[in-house]
């Protein structure tokens, strides 16, 4: 068995090595985009069951964003919702025989973590300006600036490691058990892996939302800082 920490290149496009994780990512992208396109056609005022299910997904994500940030979900819906859906489908893709989830590789998880890190900057600057974004590092006081700068990197790194560790370990354990105990024994572990994949997708998306909202809130002027809606510290611990 190959090390789960290594990615085997299937072929190269220029300097880019195309691994199975990338191929699987493309497949997931195709499935998600094509499925979303097919399902979201012909949306009407009186919804069908299909449309009601789609609206339930969107409404649930909107509720989570609104409860986490207290702000309107529209600016964050695309990024956070796609983050959740992609990680969830990627995690659950391990159920397909011969498919290794992209989130079980370092590159994918690191890419998502980097994007979360950049999205924190993007939404922070867009919400409060560059001054507000930099002011968010001085919360609750300037003494915390080094720690907050360190934290902005470590918290993303921890997300990346958490997701990678959970998914990779699940795949690894199932592989070991399947190689040792045959066909039916890994099923309970795969069911557990479904739950783990859902929880990890949820945690990753919610943490990304918390980081963004914390940056936006901390970057606002002090006079408007009457609402201590910064659960980021709590969530991180």
């Amino acid at each position: 068995m190959d090390s789960p920490l290594d990615s085997v290149a299937l072929f190269h496009i220029g300097p880019v090595a195309i691994t199975q994780a990338i191929l699987t990512t493309w497949a997931i992208m195709a499935v998600l985009v094509l499925g979303a396109y097919l399902l979201s056609r012909n949306l009407v005022l009186m919804p069908s069951k299909r449309q009601a299910a789609l609206e339930l997904i969107v409404s649930t994500i909107d509720i989570q964003i609104r409860e986490t940030t207290g702000a309107e979900p529209a600016p964050y819906r695309g990024f956070i919702g796609t983050l959740f859906l992609f990680i969830l489908v990627a995690n659950w893709s391990s159920l397909l025989p011969g498919v290794e989830p992209p989130t079980a590789t370092l590159e994918t998880d690191a890419a998502l973590a980097v994007l979360v890190f950049l999205s924190v900057i993007w939404f922070g600057v867009r919400g409060t300006g560059w001054g507000g974004y930099f002011r968010s590092f001085a919360a609750p006081n300037p003494v915390m600036i080094p720690l907050n700068m360190m934290e902005s990197i470590t918290r993303v790194f921890s997300m990346f490691v958490r997701l990678f560790g959970n998914v990779m370990s699940g795949v690894f354990v199932i592989g070991i058990v399947a190689s040792l105990a045959g066909l039916l024994v890994p099923i309970p572990l795969m069911a557990l892996d479904l739950l783990t994949g859902l929880v990890q997708a949820y945690i990753f998306a919610v943490l990304a939302m918390v980081f963004i909202s914390a940056t936006v809130e901390d970057g606002r002027p002090e006079t408007a800082d009457a609402d201590p809606s910064t659960p980021s510290r709590e969530m991180e611990r």
Partner: peptide, 14 residues
């Protein structure tokens, strides 16, 4: 390279 490609893939997906 793979990291960057995955990031681009995700942004396209978004």
């Amino acid at each position: 390279w793979g990291l960057g490609l995955q990031a681009i893939n995700f942004l396209i997906l978004v």
